[in-house]
Amino acid sequence: MGKLDVQNVSKSFGNQQVLQQLSFSVQDGEFVSILGPSGSGKSTLFNIIGGITAPDTGAIYLNGQDISGLRGNISYMPQNASLFPWRTVLQNVLLGEEIVLGKTDEEEAREMIAKAGLQGYEQAYPHELSGGMKQRVSFLRSMKSPQSMICLDEPFSALDEFTRAEMQKWLLSIWEKHRRSVLFVTHNIEEALFLSDRILVLSNKPARIQRELVIPFERPREEELVLSKSFLDYKKQLYYELRE
């Protein structure tokens, strides 16, 4: 169970309004992307959902419970891997669980690492890994965290185009196996289309939901989808939407 409701959230810093009356929800097991230009207040939104920043108005509900200003209710994957350099891959994957539950399930983590194509790296340290591998570990850490809702903050923006496409496929394959509710922030149209069930287009300063788009492509999704006519039509639509 993981149903996120964001209701009428506004936030200003000084005179600058960053978020304006933002309302949306993520259903249980749904993959929702927030698409918006850089600097459109996406990080602020995540900080509010994560309970680090309090909203000026409005509230965040998880499974019907008000979690505004409360930390630890969502699992989070930041923009850069943010792995702990003194922890091994295995220990890093276990960190989220360790923080929330105070105990860890090493067996399951090992299994996940192996299935994620990182077998043999359990005892490696982050500095021995490539950028893509670090992101994988970071994603596994958020998947291994016990919360039902995962928030991903532009997790692949620092990767090159090839690694990025590969990571998107990889992420879907893992997610389809361990279905969780996902809120995914990105400024990449294609990435949002390929991954999501639904896309929310954010306007620039102050951020409002400018458009909501349901993406009907069937799962599991193949790489060729990106080249199909309907995919390109959606892409065009979103492209014009963002230019406005």
Partner: peptide, 14 residues
């Protein structure tokens, strides 16, 4: 202490 790691710890509810 790295700000990113600190931010992660906060988001994770530490």
């Amino acid at each position: 202490t790295s700000r990113e790691l600190h931010h992660y710890m906060l988001m994770a509810g530490a």
